[in-house]
Amino acid sequence: MKRAHAAAAAFLAVLALVPAAADDFQLSVLALIFLFAYIGIAWNLMMGYAGQLSLGHALYIGVGAYTVAILAERYGVTPWLGMPVAFALCAALAALTGALGFRFAVRGVYFALLTIAFAEFTRIVFEHWEFVGKTGGFFLRALGPDNRPWSSLRGDATFFYYALLCTLALGWALSAALVSSRIGYEWRAIREDEDAARAIGVRAFRMKVLAASISGGLTGIAGGWFALLGGSLFPETVLGMRMSIDVIIAPIVGGLGSLSGPILGAFIVVPLNELSRDLAQHFNINGLNFLIYGALLMMIVLFAPHGLWPPIARLLRLHRWK
């Protein structure tokens, strides 16, 4: 225990010191890495652990984002409160989505389709809903000179770096506790064979709803960060299909069914995206980045079909602890 804690503390200390050496852009990219790693972990609880494929996580990003933004902007509610509200709302929404699907035994691809349908439905509702600004979007005011980042949860790159690092650390710790508890075992049993799991007493329905709900709730908080980072929200960008796909690339590249996979994935995918954009700009060819990014992703999927974490874990002889 002691050694592990010391190592963890050392690692966190290194990350805590990074801002002293990095510029704002690098910090922003790292903050995005933390954010995508965090969402990847949340999504992976549902997919990699409980075996339920969601292709509609934009629903929780979007609802979380609008919740935090509208509460702050319209009602002056601090995001410190907005975030828990976003969590609760998204957890409830996810539980509802899950319960509907699982109740009627919608499994596999059909469940994935259902998650897309819910997200798209919500996007269309938001695009026609005056209260959230319709397609015109919703915007946060600019920060005043008296802004205190740790109270408004908005600030410069260094602030977001630390805030998202904390979010990732907390999300990781919570997920680690969950997956090593009874719940985690039951999730994995469901993932492997739901009927066999039920035969040995796993309450599959309840556990799947729980997985969806925790995953959705955690993703809702990530949505809140999207709002605070960008200051502008549009149904198409936060609730659209593209968002649903963007957030699952990191965990897929990193590898499903582990907590390290999504983190590794985010550390690869986000910089890869930036790097390919740099190359496109360097050679002055618009769209070259998509080509490079796509080709690299294809190579990863070809050579490491189960993601990059498992082979790395094997290399380091960590295979028992996938």
């Binding site: 090593s180 009874r182 492997e192 007493g201 796993v202």
Partner: peptide, 24 residues
């Protein structure tokens, strides 16, 4: 037979044991 293929043998049996023993 329907083993939980992605789990170890011990983990398979632990899942079953968890019906009675609530603690891991």
């Amino acid at each position: 037979v329907r083993p939980l293929a992605g789990l170890t043998v011990l983990e398979n049996v632990m899942v079953a044991a968890l019906v009675r023993e609530r603690a891991v």
